[in-house]
Design a protein around this nucleic acid. Structure first.
Length: 483
DNA sequence: AATCACGTTGCTCCT
DNA sequence: CAGGAGCAACGTGAT
């Protein structure tokens, strides 16, 4: 029999999985997941919790096909070779990743496997375009608009691969580790409690989420995606990160839906362009891997970031005294997810108001987001801090009060996540420090005690940021505002 | 070849 | 109150 090992990575699904689809046709399959601690950029924190749940879900699906998922820890190469011997498999099959480190890793792994006499078959990662052929006149695109102008008209993915009709187990089975023993499901302390209530990771739920979104929310996506008071966005990002669904599947379904409902054109285009940003982020990391650790615009590499542990802690724990920031950061900690608008506001606050490095922010998001994704996180943090692509102007500094009032006018998100100020009327809910004393008293609020006073004055912090950024980004002739 | 318009998501101040 | 200038200046692709 022609047995294959299918090595699962960030592709925890049965549908639209080229490695699985093709190998299932050629013979029995041993599905394997390996936790290799020597690899860089592995999931941690909230996204590891998601990964844990997602793997359980995949394991259930595969068990029902008759060929259970096998878990192992250790060196990828050694595990694969060992399992191949035990199961009498001749071939290792996988889908590639887009992370910059993976290309070299896969290449040397492939060489090593071939040298032991095994066959290797790899399939492209979940991308909408070929990064090598997407080129402008002077090399890779650095502006989203140009990138998208080129890619958008070419978007027409063919129907995704179906799940394999049948998966046969290998003739000789192997011994699997027991996933719950890996300790990825937190208990003491159990910081994932609210995540368990909020999310159901897994391929089935990914498609239910997509369908609900397309049926109920796509038609008002452009208007509602930025709202903080209700969920007008797709919530697909964690499923995408684990590979429970592919961007190709989402694009295909969205295009079909837009065709069905011509009136949803603008909303559909907006949504597609968000997937475009996901694609662009991957594209950028492939061509400019240095931006994982360095500003895309080198002129900012000497920016005088502040080392301010107290302010950083206040930001992380939702105690800055700015309700929209605090609600955002508490939501992030509780359910591992905040919408795009919240990410921008809180990222702007950290980098422009507190003048703390985007890398600190990116590190925190990496630990706390269930959808944490190296490319999206890196590119977006740099964009907000004004050091990334698209000549995003550094003077675009978000005002946390105005943003709150605009996108959560009735303070619904504020009252949900900051109950200690829920008694404030809407007029003051985003600026408690300006509320008249009697009102504060009636609402049971003592600023600085029951809820923090603002840790910085936004308009002052803004002036300081403009001066510091201007000194590097501009002509260097800005007047000094700081004594 | 040189020039030009334009660029995901803002804010403040001035008239 | 609305509306507009200003905040800087570079890659991209069209002319």
């Amino acid at each position: 029999m022609n047995t294959s090992i299918v090595w699962f990575r960030k592709d925890l699904r049965l549908k639209d999985n080229p490695a699985l689809f093709h190998s299932a046709r050629s013979g029995p399959i041993l599905p394997v997941y390996i936790w290799d601690e020597t690899l860089p950029e592995q999931e941690e924190g909230a996204s590891r919790w998601w990964l844990h749940e997602s793997l359980l879900s995949l394991a259930r699906s595969l068990s029902s096909t008759g060929s259970p998922l096998v878990f192992a820890r250790g060196s990828t190469k050694e595990v694969l070779v060992h399992f191949a011997k035990r199961s009498n498999a001749q071939k290792i099959v996988w889908n590639e990743l887009t992370e910059p480190w993976a290309k070299t890793f896969d290449l040397s792994l492939k060489k090593e496997l071939l040298s032991t006499g095994l066959k290797v078959e790899t399939y492209p990662p979940d991308l909408l375009s070929d990064p090598e052929s997407m080129m402008g006149k002077n090399g890779p695109y650095r502006v989203f608009g140009q990138f998208w102008k080129r890619l958008r008209p070419a978007l027409d993915p063919s129907a995704p691969f179906p799940a394999p009709e049948r998966i046969f187990p290998p003739e000789f089975s192997v011994i699997s580790e027991y996933l719950p023993e890996w300790g990825w499901n937190p208990s003491r302390p159990d910081w994932a409690k609210e995540m368990r209530e909020k999310w159901i990771p897994g391929e089935e739920q990914a498609h239910m989420t997509l369908n609900t979104f397309l049926d109920e929310r796509l038609q008002s996506y452009e208007k509602n995606r930025d709202r903080l008071d209700h969920e007008g966005y797709s919530m697909l990002s964690p499923f995408l990160h684990a590979g429970e669904i592919t961007s190709r599947q989402i694009v295909r379904a969205t295009l079909d839906k837009m065709h069905e409902h011509p009136g949803w054109q603008n909303d559909g285009e907006k949504f597609l362009s968000e997937l475009g940003w996901r694609e662009f982020s991957r594209y950028l990391l492939i061509h400019f891997p240095k931006m994982i650790s360095e500003p895309f615009q080198p002129k900012f590499s000497s920016f005088p970031w502040k080392d301010n542990p107290e302010a950083l802690l206040a930001w992380k724990s939702g105690k800055t005294g700015y309700p929209v920031i605090d609600a955002t950061m508490r939501q992030l900690w509780a359910i591992g997810y905040i919408p795009n608008r919240s990410r921008m506001i809180s990222a702007s606050f950290l980098t422009k108001d507190l003048l703390i490095s985007w890398k600190e922010g990116a590190r925190w998001f990496r630990e706390t987001l269930v959808d944490h994704d190296l490319a999206n996180n890196t590119v977006s943090w740099q964009w907000v801090s004004g050091m990334g692509v698209d000549a995003a102007p550094y003077f675009r500094i978000y005002n946390p009060v105005l943003q709150g009032e605009r996108y959560d006018p009735e303070g619904i998100a504020i009252r949900k996540w900051i109950p200690e100020i829920k008694g404030l009327p809407n007029q003051w809910i985003h600026r408690p420090w300006e509320a008249p004393e009697p009102l504060l008293k009636r609402a049971g609020i003592i600023l600085g005690k029951t809820y923090p006073a603002p840790i910085v004055d936004h308009s002052y912090a803004r002036q300081e940021a403009l001066a510091l950024f201007g000194a590097l980004g501009g002509k260097g002739q800005k007047p000094e505002l700081m004594a």
